[in-house]
Amino acid sequence: MNKELASRLLLKMMLIRRFEENVQYYFTLGMIHGTCHLCIGEEATAAGTCLALEKDDDMFATHRGHGAAIAKGIDIRRMMAEIFGRSTGVCKGLGGSMHIADKDVGVLGANGIVGPSMALACGAAMAHKMRGEKRVAAAFFGDGATNEGIFHESMNLASIWKLPVLFICTNNTYGMSTHISKVMADTEIEHRAIPFKMKACTIDGNDAELVYETVRAARAEILEDPQPILIVENTYRISGHSKSDGNLYRTKEEISAWKEKDPIRTFAGRMEAQGILTKAETDALWAEADEKIRAAVDFATQSPYPKVEDLYDSVYAE
């Protein structure tokens, strides 16, 4: 791990954390409407995975997609404006939290439906393969999505057509409130690759360095030899499912135990222990993240709202 990469990983995770905390805050104040699915605690899966991708690679996210979009390189100010429902938002205020997208940086959309990201990523990978482009597509999905039919259809299609696609399962062990042990006979999600003769691995998704190295290696492998790979990134959602979550399905002890494995603090601590970053440098990264998110909130709150009169112009492409 070199200093430059360590700084990038850490800054991305800090930006995601501060972004989510601010969204939560302004949501509570009533300045953001709708709903939001925050990814606090899962920052290493987003940052490690997306920094291992290139700008040209395609990434399809889940409903809990803020972190992946930020890590893939979306403009944070315009993303914040989107969540505030402003015309300057990345989706002009038409999409909101659950549909954050910017094709220019390979963010092909968060998705309000559980599962389809996988099939869509297969399609993007098919396009890359047909055109002989050296690009990959990555699909994020949660443990819950692996019980959907589309998971199995997409795994099969990617496998038989040898599509250069990375299936990234962020396994936070809960589909909303339902623990995987209640809905899977075999909770080793990696095993679900076996019938498709697909390579798969399971890693500590809270270890940003490990996530980065694993995805980087997988990306290189599927570019060389087109095929899908399933990577299960075990992690934990510290934040609730959404604004309606009363945390009735898990204990404070469980949440506290996972807070001890906070991906940002553990990574920063390790980098300091290894002498790669100093405490002053990690503090400076926090300050940078704070400043960028503050600027994003300022940009968003000062931006105009979109006009309803223009809406019909947005339904169909020219």
Partner: peptide, 13 residues
């Protein structure tokens, strides 16, 4: 569902 989804992804690209 799988192959229509694939077609959509390819169309997006």
């Amino acid at each position: 569902a799988g192959f229509v989804g694939v077609a959509i992804g390819a169309a997006v690209e």
